[in-house]
């Protein structure tokens, strides 16, 4: 390399990189392997078996919780994507407006706010609201969705915002010059261009929701326990092969979803690269 670091240095660097990857992946791989362990003991290999997967599929509590989690994650991802996209449009396209500082603050804070504070704050809000206006009644799917949207909409905003900022604004201007109304320009021009970011944001909000323990613990009730809460109460009792099996299913599902999303986004990127660009005129 022209920057002048030698072969040894490069080797050391890639050695450290592999170490980081090993650190990230070894625990997951170990867990997957042990989900097929016939023995209940963690350190003893009792042969290959699917029996924990069988037991899992008969556990109604786990199945109910998984179904609730999927519904919550779906509703959350959809609402958060709509609100997050609007917020991104506000941040990128509206340069100055009153309360901009507060708005950027409220978008950035949930990204780092410890979940335990957000969870407590959300619950106290719901209790106060129930007292004041009688809604929401108790803790239910509704309260979980509201709480999840509140923290995941920031993540959608960040993803959509970067795509929107990279987008060539002259496309929108051209459409406006040709007499299209702003709403139409957004639907016909802007939305298709930022669609990959919307998909990425939707998936991110979906995983954040299906993954969340702490906030859900505050805002879910006895009648509505999402999957992470059920897993958490089992995990607190120690390692069990059923949880290994459940975890393996979750990891496999996420892997498949990521592979599909990655493929969709890559193919779109490629399309865009091949499409002749109208906006950047080539020197003749």
């Amino acid at each position: 390399m022209s920057t002048g670091w030698g072969r040894n240095r490069a080797l050391a660097l890639y050695g450290l990189l592999s170490l980081a990857y090993a650190f990230l992946y070894v625990p997951i791989v170990v867990m997957i392997i042990y989900s097929f362990n016939a023995s209940r003991l963690v350190t003893v290999w009792g042969g290959f078996s699917f029996k924990w997967y069988g037991e899992l599929l008969q556990d109604e509590k786990v199945l109910d919780a998984a179904w609730l989690s999927l519904q919550v994650a779906f509703a959350n991802a959809t609402i958060a994507t709509i609100l997050g996209t609007l917020a991104a449009v506000v941040l990128v396209r509206f340069r100055r407006f009153r309360g901009r500082t507060l708005f950027t603050g409220m978008i950035a804070a949930p990204l780092v706010m410890p979940e335990i504070i957000t969870g407590l704050a959300m619950l106290l809000l719901f209790v106060a609201m129930e007292q004041a206006i009688g809604w929401p009644q108790g803790r239910s799917m509704t309260t979980i969705v509201i709480a999840h949207v509140t923290f995941s909409l920031s993540f959608v905003t960040v993803v959509v915002q970067s795509r929107l900022a990279q987008m060539d604004a002259s496309l929108e201007e051209a459409a406006m010059d040709l007499g299209a109304r702003p709403a139409k320009v957004f639907l016909v021009i802007t939305l298709p261009i930022i669609a990959p970011a919307l998909l990425a944001g939707w998936l991110l909000a979906f995983t954040l929701s299906i993954d969340d323990v702490v906030i859900s613990a505050f805002v879910s009730g006895p009648g509505a326990s999402p999957l992470p809460i059920v897993i958490f109460s089992k995990v607190r009792l120690g390692v069990s092969p059923e949880i290994n099996a459940l975890a393996t299913i979750v990891v496999a599902l996420v892997g498949v979803a990521m592979a599909i999303a990655g493929r969709v986004m890559l193919s779109r990127d490629r399309d865009e690269r091949h499409r002749p660009t109208v906006t950047s005129p080539q020197p003749v």
Partner: peptide, 12 residues
């Protein structure tokens, strides 16, 4: 992938 599950993996 699930944060909870990744932390849990370390217990074993």
């Amino acid at each position: 992938t699930s944060f909870l599950i990744r932390v849990y993996a370390w217990i074993g």
